[in-house]
Design a binder for these strands. Structure first.
Length: 594
DNA sequence: CATTTTGACGCT
DNA sequence: AGCGTCAA
């Protein structure tokens, strides 16, 4: 499958937090509303505003009181507070409602945020083609074409109808795929509404950037198709900052360096010029992007990579005593703990690393990590407190903390799958559960995405072998997903392989869009200093993964010990040992790449 | 005083 | 590992 022939959708829930609150209190449907947190100070800060309220000029980030001035009928929902801290679980749970619908209907869904999802529809569209549907305007009641601003419904129907007939009769521009994609998205949006009660908007295009961009063209409750032939005309009027990834300093730099306002104006610059100014990778990405080419894949990650709780303590509310700091360490630790416990029950995994983030009055932000050996509020809080105390310039006996703290965050990450008891040996006896198979396959996909420095031991054949050793019904589906991804990657690597010439003069701001070509070019030696050699297996291990790696050796030894003592068990045991060895290998591979 | 609280990811 | 950027 050609990467440029993909069909990608971006689904964005309309003012999601407001809808979540309105679902609980339907009497506010149709009224101007917003969701704010910390209502005592100027009515709190608005983190979501519905479209009725936007008509009055109310915006996200405004104070509740300010919104009331603009719109006297404005209703403010308040984010739940637990231990004096905003708690967003209500929205996380509602998000899960939405993603259950998406995951039940599509194979390749990427959770981009609490209220946004990318879907790769390429395969679904191909299947749909065989059905030879005769689609009419009635199948596209909320669909718009990017680049055509239609003032009336009649106008929308007229333009869309013409386009619809064009691509069904003569698909010269290859737009039929997008039409089928839009058809599927009309259906899923209806399904989301029926099953969750939430409205959403969507963009359908050939890549993620375009899907994301055009999703915003018609909102709310609508969807927009971005065809390749409309790119030039639309980009000529698209401010640089509207492109995802160019909304910050990177975009400013583009505007400054090239003296442009709209992204399309970059077309007059050669690849060489873009690369000379922006660096090879970023220049290449830009050059392709403005021609409608962008290859970032939709990943099929469903689970969070980190779970965190944080709070600001601005101005006078700053934390200036150990007692206050301790209290907030506990409050934050409790939130993280509760969510980690839920995650462990649902996903059979455990976070292994605790990261503490704090901002001091000196305006410096400090990040420090420590291992998580056990889920416990006390442990999380005390670890956090211990770390924070290291930056106290005051006497250890005093309760006063200097400099004062303006922000504390606790984040748990580096999840390890299938460790749900205290016994490390259990790691191996649980290897054949359903969940295990799913997650380990996902890990392999991630490894494939990330790793560059590994030699031949992770060839396609090797990787493909691993999941097949444990045969379970649900696995097949995930396995196919992976195969497809790998196939795409391979093609890209072959066709775009070229050598690096120079290092960029500018920091790489676009690196998240790194094409596969560039993954190939990434030099591994830059992080070589972080590797040490394990004395037991002589593998190269990232230094901060060493504790886990040693856990692995310990567990391995336990396993060998167990096998010796239980030599009576026969056939089933031999099979089990085989599987175990297989998973041990993948354990090593995974570790050495993290 | 005071867009908050999350998340993901890249660079070194 | 720790810092920085970007986004909603």
């Amino acid at each position: 499958m050609n990467i440029d022939h993909r069909v990608i959708a971006l689904i964005d829930m309309d003012c999601f937090y407001v809808q979540v609150e309105q679902r609980l209190q339907p009497e506010f449907l149709g009224k101007p509303c917003g969701v704010s947190q910390y209502y005592t100070w100027k009515g709190g800060g608005l983190i979501a505003v519905n479209y009725e309220a936007r008509d009055f000029g109310v915006k996200r980030g405004m104070r509740g009181e300010q919104a009331k001035e603009l719109c006297p009928d404005f209703h403010i929902f308040h984010v739940q507070e637990v231990n004096g801290k905003a708690n967003l679980n209500r929205y996380r749970d509602a998000s899960a409602d939405v993603f259950r619908v998406l995951n039940a209907n599509f194979k390749l869904v990427e959770k981009a945020s609490i209220d946004e999802a990318y879907i790769d529809l390429t395969e679904d569209v191909q299947k749909l083609k065989d059905k030879k549907l005769q689609l009419t305007i009635n199948d596209f009641s909320t669909t718009h074409l990017a680049g055509f601003t239609t003032k009336t419904e009649d106008e929308r129907i007229e333009i869309l109808n013409k386009w619809l007939n064009d691509c069904q009769l003569d698909d010269e521009k290859r737009n039929y795929d997008l039409l089928l994609g839009a058809y599927l998205i009309e259906q899923i949006r209806k399904k989301i509404k029926d099953q969750t009660g939430f409205f959403c908007s969507a963009g359908i295009a050939r890549n993620k950037i375009l899907a994301k961009l055009c999703c915003g063209f018609n909102k709310p409750k609508k969807q927009t198709i971005f065809t390749q032939s409309d790119i030039d005309h639309i980009f000529d009027k698209t401010p640089v900052q509207k492109i995802q990834g160019l909304g910050g300093k990177a975009g400013e730099r583009v505007v400054e360096l090239f003296q442009v306002e709209y992204i399309g104006q970059l077309r007059k610059y050669s690849l060489d010029m873009l690369q000379t100014s922006m660096g090879e990778k970023d220049g290449c990405w830009l050059f392709n992007l403005i021609r409608g080419i962008e290859t970032t894949p939709v990943s099929n990650r469903n689970l969070y990579k980190s779970i965190s709780a944080s709070k600001n303590f601005p101005g006078k509310t700053c934390l200036d005593t150990i007692d206050k700091i301790r209290t907030w360490c506990y409050n934050l630790a409790e939130d993280v703990f509760n969510r980690l416990e839920k995650d462990r029950a649902e996903n059979k995994r455990r976070a292994k690393l605790l990261t503490v983030i704090c901002t001091l009055a000196t305006n410096e932000t400090i990040t420090r990590s420590c291992p998580i050996n056990e889920y416990s509020i006390d442990r999380f809080a005390n670890d956090t407190l211990r770390i924070l105390k290291q930056y106290n310039k005051n006497s250890l006996t005093s309760n006063i903390y200097t400099p004062v703290i303006h922000h504390i965050g606790i984040s748990a990450g580096k999840f390890l799958d299938n460790i749900n008891t205290k016994s490390i040996a259990d790691l191996f006896s649980k290897q054949t559960t359903k969940i295990e198979t799913i997650t380990s396959t996902e890990n392999i996909i991630n490894c494939q995405e990330e790793e560059e420095e590994e030699e031949d031991n992770n060839t396609e054949e090797n990787i493909l072998e691993k999941p097949t050793t444990t045969t379970l019904p649900i696995q097949g589906d995930f396995f196919r997903k992976f195969q497809k991804f790998d196939e795409q990657t391979k093609i890209q690597l072959k066709s775009e392989n070229k050598t690096t010439t120079s290092s960029s003069s500018i920091t790489s701001f676009f690196s998240r869009y790194t094409s596969n070509e560039n993954i190939l070019n990434c030099s591994p030696n830059k992080i070589d200093d972080h590797y040490i050699t394990c004395s037991k297996c002589h593998k190269s291990i990232l230094i901060w993964n060493m504790p886990e790696h040693e856990d692995f050796h310990y567990a391995h030894e336990l396993q060998i010990e167990e096998n010796k003592t239980n030599s009576i068990i026969k056939s089933s045991k031999t099979i089990k040992r085989k599987n175990t060895n297989q998973t041990l290998d993948s354990f090593i591979n995974k570790k050495s790449k993290m």
